[in-house]
Design a protein around this nucleic acid. Sequence first.
DNA 1: AGACGTGTGTGGTCTGACCACCAAGTTTTT
DNA 2: AAAAACTTGGTGGTCAGACCACACACGTCT
Lengths: 204, 204
Amino acid sequence: MANSKVYLEIVKQLREMIAADGLMQGDKIPSERELSERLNVGRSSVREALRALELLGLIETRRGEGTFIRDFHGHQLVQLLSTFILQDEKAKSDVYETKYLLEMDCLRLAVKKMDDAMIYSMEKWLSETAQFHDDDFFCQIVQGAENHLFSRIWGILKDYYNALIANPVHYDRKDYFLLFKALAEKNEQKTLSAYCKLRNLSID
Amino acid sequence: MANSKVYLEIVKQLREMIAADGLMQGDKIPSERELSERLNVGRSSVREALRALELLGLIETRRGEGTFIRDFHGHQLVQLLSTFILQDEKAKSDVYETKYLLEMDCLRLAVKKMDDAMIYSMEKWLSETAQFHDDDFFCQIVQGAENHLFSRIWGILKDYYNALIANPVHYDRKDYFLLFKALAEKNEQKTLSAYCKLRNLSID
DNA sequence: AGACGTGTGTGGTCTGACCACCAAGTTTTT
DNA sequence: AAAAACTTGGTGGTCAGACCACACACGTCT
């Protein structure tokens, strides 16, 4: 059988193990030696798998204590990748373009799906929060889109985007209100053009 | 000194080494044993670093040959994370919805970006291919969108979608022609409604 | 010229051995 | 009794050496 590399197999097993035992972020996973024994592989192979996952930011190891599941939205991976990919301008523009398109999709969904309660709570948040980050705003929009898969993809892209951007742009606060207003009116056309205005995108 | 982990140091050294020697994608990097010697570390540590980079998709190893720099234009991160994220999301409708939205985005991009040569070759393909799969058609559209990241995401979604669908639907061949025609005319409105018709989506 | 070993180098894996560190329990000191 | 010091077992971190599977290039044989 196994022509596949052992460490990849371990990554897979680990994922299943986490799912099966319902381990959450912060929980401890079995020690390297125990994994090695339970999976019938050498400790080196276990370590290769763990180190890879660590570099990805999916787990965290503390010497003398153990290995723990980490907050999946770790920025580490993104940061790391960006140092490798930084040079590629085309890749950058791909990220921008994709993020914008996804956000517009979210807006389209939100226009259809957001109910009054959500709109109200967002309105409250907007009026009460003096200073907010662009991500905070769109995080709510994305939630309003009620598509978990979409949320995930957007979340990754957002982190990636932020890692690429040297100086985070700050948009005009008024434009957020306009965007929200159009959204609350459930007017797709208006919402999208408000978005383009916010992002300084040509409407083309 | 060094409380920092060796394998992380190696990752850093490796990056510098690649930059200094101007290594490009496809080039071979020194063997594990040589790196171990040059950096004065154990081969295990070198391997931990390499395995991590491999899982990230930054390098590729071929047994008996060596380790090579990979085309990391390819945003492997999405691929990877998806295996961790998609596992528990059973919401089929999310997948459908997301796939459709992405395809529409691709169409919007394609309307703007596809040049005459691509349109011509696609027209040729359409007329010459008696029977084709839905994926084949959209694979070309996605390429026309000229966004590698988008291609990746769509590719993953497509596979996931196909895995969810028991009996692959076969759409009307005529509808593909209509869609292509609208695309060739570079008419976004028409293209999108042709897509909705193809997929039997309400225009809402 | 072609087919066939064979040698060398490469990644892939396992084992055993240390070290550094931490936490918890145990003993000693105050 | 309370506080400090020590012991112990478990954990990750690292290394060295061994063996395997594989790929390629070289030389040999036909």
